[in-house]
Design a protein around this nucleic acid. Structure first.
Lengths: 201, 201
DNA sequence: GTCTATAGAGGGATAGAC
DNA sequence: GTCTATCCCTCTATAGAC
């Protein structure tokens, strides 16, 4: 008898998810057909449904990748003795994600889906809470060190940091004269001013 | 011969668009069928396509309503002798739109569509530019009056105002403990601080 | 008589089920 | 791989205004 190989299983799932990401981002969830995903991933229909029960399940699997990456980054910032540097690393990562065409397209698709699908909304909420916890911890350390004096309590301030980084996402249209570098620098100054950090003066 | 009636034409288009808005917002563009729109609007298939060449054309028509409303508001703020009061009216309007469940759902759908449809992206860009022009004018008046000292030039500051108001939008999941009133007050303080207006101190 | 508004059946394409 | 269902849109037809 043939036993299940967990490593192969994980690899096949990864292969399918990787192929689906690009399709979801460019065509949208509704307009992406399972047949296309099969073609892109190089698996048969039957095989695809062996690894995922539905098209939506593939979509939801995307969240796992994101979760693992952010857990890793926040662990690093927690270990960093300088909370401001850690916060700036978070900002840089968010900027990098927003500049990534596939990820950016995927995100708007995820928000649209979350607005009408409670399961997707729960996954988004979970990710958001994780982000907010991580950033709040950094802000609290800044306040404790006497290096910040935010207009609002740290949890709210953390939310404002996320709002600020939302500026990295275009509203769906390309802005040709966009300078990502100065944009990030501006965002950091804005955050500094919001948090009452010396760099915002 | 029978002549075209512009008023009837306008009315029928409005009727169709009005019915479609809700469907687009709740089900999404792709999952809304023209048959459903017909049923909701109380018109036949043939009639619907007499007024709009395609389903997408109905979607695009939504932008016209938005444009007219904002033109009106910005005309009012331009006439208002107090630019700060005008800016706060803009913020209030943006907050009201974000709190409106149908409009909020529609907006994420529009952004998702814009990410893969250049025509939609152009319409979004046009609306954005209009918003930025209006806000920039208000910021410039504040600076001229010596009532503001933004960290960045007025056009960039206007962009940051819009980014701040993005906080009003949910990320697609219900946030039960959300207090819209204090949220708006916070946003106004944040904007004041960004612009270097006295209320941000 | 000609053009507009409306209606609804069905074509052509395609997705998903079995 | 076949079969059914569905969807966007076209086409033809009718009623009535000018």
């Amino acid at each position: 008898m043939r036993t299940a190989d967990p490593e192969l299983h994980r690899q096949r799932r990864q292969q399918i998810v990787g192929a689906a990401v690009e399709l979801f981002a460019t065509k949208g969830l509704a307009k992406t057909t399972t047949a296309e995903i099969c073609r892109a991933a190089g698996v048969s229909t039957g095989n695809l449904f062996h690894y995922f029960p539905s098209k939506l399940a593939i979509f939801y699997a995307l969240f796992e990748v994101d979760r693992d990456e952010w857990d890793e980054l926040f662990a690093a910032t927690a270990a960093d003795p300088d909370p401001w540097a850690g916060l700036m690393r978070v900002v840089d990562q968010l900027a990098a994600d927003a500049a990534h065409p596939v990820l950016a397209g995927l995100l708007v698709e995820i928000f649209a889906q979350a607005h009408r699908d409670p399961e997707c909304a729960a996954l988004v909420a979970e990710g958001d809470q994780r982000m907010l916890r991580g950033i709040t911890a950094l802000v609290e350390r800044l306040v404790a060190d006497g290096r910040a004096d935010p207009v609002v309590p740290p949890p709210d301030a953390a939310r404002w940091v996320l709002t600020t980084t939302d500026a990295f996402h275009t509203r769906g249209y390309p802005e040709p004269d966009r300078d990502r570098t100065t944009e990030i620098a501006q965002a950091k100054r804005v955050i500094a001013r919001l948090l009452g950090h010396p760099e915002g003066r």
